[in-house]
Design a protein around this nucleic acid. Structure first.
Length: 579
DNA sequence: AACCCTTTGAAGGGG
DNA sequence: CCCCTTCAAAGGGTT
């Protein structure tokens, strides 16, 4: 059993991942080869910058317009999450976001009836709610955190958080416990939660003064509302998201699971009726399964009105049904993706997930250590939670469920030439603008931690200790796709890290994914096509960092160093399968 | 309808 | 111990 203690213990690899920029090296090399490309790049860069700026400004209005129209379901929810996370970040960073009111409460993702782990489309998995909670409680293993489990003092958050934490001192490791709640239809928001600012029509919390919002990123009305209010900012635009947990408590559908005290406290105690309003609709009060559980029955249900919970998983029909599909817990990056996807999507016209994911991947690498640590911590908690809920579960259990995986395309077996393998060269990067918007998104400010020390100090940032900054790039030279582990933490694996790993897998090096280049339409001036046009491969590195990630002192410095490194020592190998 | 694509990380099995 | 595979999210695109 993993220790929950705030973090210190298992690093979970939080550190290693830090920055890999693997492909950059290759690209860098490429660039040298293509001088002309570079030139174009300049053009592209400038144009991109302009575009992005324009875009950001326009996007605001656009979003404002669009948002109301679009159905605020999972999508909007995602956005909301983004904003939440944003807010969280800001708080943690002690940054600009002023929310003195509830500084110390970490976010808690509350499960909705339909949990995020549900694969069923109708029950969108994405929904997660953040609730502010005292993070340490979550951490506590069993007994410790549960003091209040017995005496749940509903409604008094303050009680639960005796110690007033400063916004600036918020623990970076704020745990997010994810549960979904997307299924909730917009219901009445909790009265205790900023009722006054609820939108009469939608029931969505609104922001009294948009002006308070950070100018740096475009907030959708809903999101704005969420953020604006001290409490409301924790809740998704649709108040309903908050109430994922039935007052009755959390009853695990999965028979085998015994709820661990900490869990129960987490669920029942933390989300007391007071805090969690009863499901507006017909939510099953019976209980909420962990997000990871996917009942087969549910999956089949076409529409959202299902009562997944009502049906006990066990008695169900066949053997298959017996075993609900329990999804894997989300890893740090997945959590990040969920949060940021909507934002990225909003910032650009790009819609393809593949492209979005590329951007997200870039951004992920550009995140500061603290920021990443936060997600690692969250992921760790999710895993812990998951393991507690489903002790016997193994990732292996899900193997084959997806039934896809045909992937005949083996790196070595089929060296090249195949049509399918071609994908390596194709980049989904947004043609028109690198969506990754610059400042608008999580911008510069976020990164500049007002109180970095706090973040670092926290257990959450275990990895931080290292010299990443000092020598972040040592790894860069590694051509391999997955090099992140190379930096890894001392404690964790990778003892071999520093030693040259590159040799390890000669053939596999390029195996899957790393795609160093991105394609940018060279000649597209005004034309805009959402579809990625592949005209000329351009190394990511060549792009200005701002294009791919929010500029921040930290980032820029890091990027700079990276670049410098690369330049100084060009990568030897281009693993890219030619052809 | 199912799968692909794309990203990172975690987990597990095999060598 | 290392490598490889699979899956987690997501949604437009492809088959």
């Amino acid at each position: 059993m993993p220790q929950l203690n705030g973090g210190g213990g298992d690093d979970l690899g939080a550190n290693d991942e830090m920055i890999s920029f693997k492909d950059e090296g290759e690209q860098e090399e490429k660039i040298s080869e293509n001088v002309s490309a570079e030139r174009d790049l300049d053009d592209v860069k400038s144009s991109l910058v302009n575009e992005s700026e324009n875009n950001s400004s326009s996007s605001d209005s656009e979003q404002a317009e669009r948002r109301p129209q679009t159905r605020p379901d999972s999508e909007s929810y995602e956005k909301t999450r983004d904003y939440f996370s944003e807010a969280l970040r800001r708080q943690q960073d002690g940054g600009f976001f002023k929310s003195p009111h509830y500084p110390g409460y970490p976010f808690l993702m509350i499960p909705d009836l339909t949990n995020p782990y549900l694969s069923n489309g109708s029950l969108s998995p994405s929904a997660r709610t953040y609730l502010q909670m005292k993070w340490p409680l979550l951490d506590v293993p069993g007994s410790a955190g549960l003091k209040d489990s017995r005496s749940p003092t509903p409604g008094h958050l303050s009680n639960k958080v005796p110690v007033v934490q400063h916004a600036h001192h918020v623990h970076p490791l704020t745990p997010l416990i994810t549960y979904s709640n997307e299924h909730f239809s917009p219901g009445t928001p909790p009265s205790h939660l900023s009722p006054e600012i609820l939108d009469p029509k939608t029931g969505i919390p609104r922001t009294p003064h948009p002006s308070e919002l950070s100018p740096y990123y475009p907030l959708s009305p809903g999101a704005v509302g969420s953020i604006a209010h001290p409490l409301s900012w924790l809740m998704p635009q649709q108040g309903q998201h908050m109430y994922s947990i039935p007052p009755g408590g959390f009853r695990h559908p999965y028979p085998a699971l015994a709820m661990n005290p900490s869990m129960s406290s987490l669920v029942s105690s933390r989300f007391s009726p007071h805090m969690v309003t009863p499901p507006p609709h017909s939510l099953h009060q019976t209980g909420i399964p962990h997000p990871a559980i996917v009942s087969p029955a549910i999956k089949q249900e076409p529409s959202g009105d299902i009562n997944p919970l009502s049906k006990s998983p066990v008695p169900a029909k066949k053997e298959e049904d017996k075993k609900p599909h329990i999804k894997k817990p989300l890893n740090a990056f997945m959590l990040y993706m969920k949060e940021m996807r909507a934002k990225v999507v909003a910032e650009c016209t790009l819609k393809e997930s593949a492209a979005i994911n590329q951007i997200l991947g870039r951004r992920w690498h550009s995140l500061s250590r603290e920021e990443q640590a936060k997600y690692y911590e969250l992921a760790r908690k999710e895993r812990q939670l998951h393991s507690q809920l489903y002790p016997g579960w193994s990732a292996r259990d899900n193997y084959g469920k997806r039934k896809k995986r045909k992937r005949e395309n083996k790196p070595d077996s089929k060296p090249e030439g195949k049509g399918p393998s071609k994908k390596q060269c194709v980049q989904y990067l947004p043609s028109e603008k690198m969506c990754d918007s610059p400042a608008s998104s999580h911008g510069s400010m976020l990164d500049s931690p007002a109180t970095p020390s706090a973040a670092l100090a926290s257990p959450a940032a275990p990895a931080a200790t290292h010299s990443e900054q000092a020598q972040p790039l040592s790894l860069t030279t590694k051509p391999e796709g997955r090099m992140q582990h190379h930096f890894s933490i001392p404690g964790k694996a990778s003892g071999s890290t520093s030693s040259s790993s590159s040799s390890s897998s000669s053939s596999s090096s390029t195996s899957s994914s790393s795609q160093p280049t991105i394609s940018i339409p060279v000649g597209t001036s005004g034309s805009q096509s959402n579809t990625p046009i592949l005209t000329r491969p351009i190394p990511f590195t060549s792009l200005h960092p701002s294009m791919l990630s929010p500029p921040s002192p930290f980032h820029q410095a890091a990027l700079h160093s990276h670049h410098a490194l690369f330049q100084s020592q060009p990568l030897s190998l281009v693993t890219k399968p030619t052809e």
